[in-house]
Design a binder for these strands. Structure first.
Length: 272
DNA sequence: AGCGGAACCTGTCGGC
DNA sequence: TGCCGACAGGTTCCGC
């Protein structure tokens, strides 16, 4: 489901809603997300801990707990966190209930069961995090860094942008929208991008992500915010999901191709 | 290095 | 209406 702007939206909403809440109960309805950890161990590691705050790294959510401990969550395609008043029975896709000390329930739900919840005592134990590249909203994501990093890879621009080990947080929707904004073709090799084009890509990345966050992300089929309101960025998509529709800039039809088994949408006229 | 393919599991939608 | 294949915003294997 979510890419960086959606995860950022969820993190912000969680912070305003559950910061300082203590986890009193944990109920597990389906344990797929827990990996090797047994449900009982998972529960015992959380109960009695207070949620200090929630942060984002790439597309991962990190719940910082006290006494010190971390729950590292990845929503994959369909994972969601929702906050509700206490309810008697789990809904269809509810996987884990976290009962909070104010009587509310933090619900982890996930139709496809791809999402993951890992508990570690130190973040270094969460190997996935150490493999993440630069977060595009931090100062490390600079023009010179981008130009140099692109020059070291012959991957297509689309794959390069989606490689979490390079830039952390972009997925299929935003990679497409960023390339359209930068007027670069998705099949272009990363190391074919010149200095001026790298500047365009850098600007476009920042611009699209900031805009999407300000719109609370993109709701297409199943992204839901914590409060179940929808994002608004889907109304601003220029190429994603718009095969055969006229390009907003040149009116020629948007084309869909497949790269790395994923759909890529772009305008062959505007993107070179 | 980087790509294609498959796998994880479920739901939805379009075509026949 | 029913069945079947394609597709879905992600990640991580494996093999070439």
């Amino acid at each position: 489901m979510p890419e960086l702007p959606e995860v950022e939206t969820i993190v912000r909403e969680l912070n305003s809603a559950i910061r300082g809440r203590r986890i009193d109960t944990v109920r597990i309805f389906r344990a797929d997300a827990l990996g090797d950890m047994k449900p009982r161990a998972f529960r015992n590691k959380l109960v009695g801990h207070t949620i200090q705050d929630v942060e984002r790294r790439g597309k991962y959510l990190i719940f910082n707990l006290l006494p010190v401990r971390f729950m590292v969550a990845h929503l994959r395609m369909t994972g969601k966190f929702a906050l509700t008043p206490a309810i008697p029975k789990p809904m269809r896709h509810h996987r884990v209930w976290f009962g909070l000390d104010n009587g509310e329930l933090l619900v982890f739900q996930d139709a496809r069961c791809f999402g993951t919840l890992r508990i570690v005592d130190a973040l270094e134990e969460a190997g996935q995090l150490s493999r993440l590249g630069v977060d595009p909203l931090t100062r490390r994501f600079s023009n010179p860094w981008l130009a140099e990093a692109l020059g070291k890879s012959r991957a297509s621009l689309k794959s390069w942008l989606m490689d979490q080990g390079k830039i952390a947080g972009l997925g299929n929707i935003y990679a497409a929208e960023i390339l359209f904004a930068a007027q670069l073709a998705p099949e272009r090799a990363a190391d074919s991008v010149d200095a001026a084009e790298a500047v365009r890509l850098h600007r476009a990345t920042r611009k699209i992500l900031r805009k999407a966050i300000s719109k609370n992300g993109t709701t297409i089929s199943d992204f839901a915010r914590v409060d179940s309101k929808q994002g608004e960025f889907q109304n601003m998509l220029k190429v994603y999901g718009r095969e055969n529709e006229p390009c907003t800039s040149c009116r020629n039809p948007i084309v869909r191709i497949v790269q790395q088994q994923r759909s890529t949408f772009y305008c062959p006229q505007c993107q070179r």
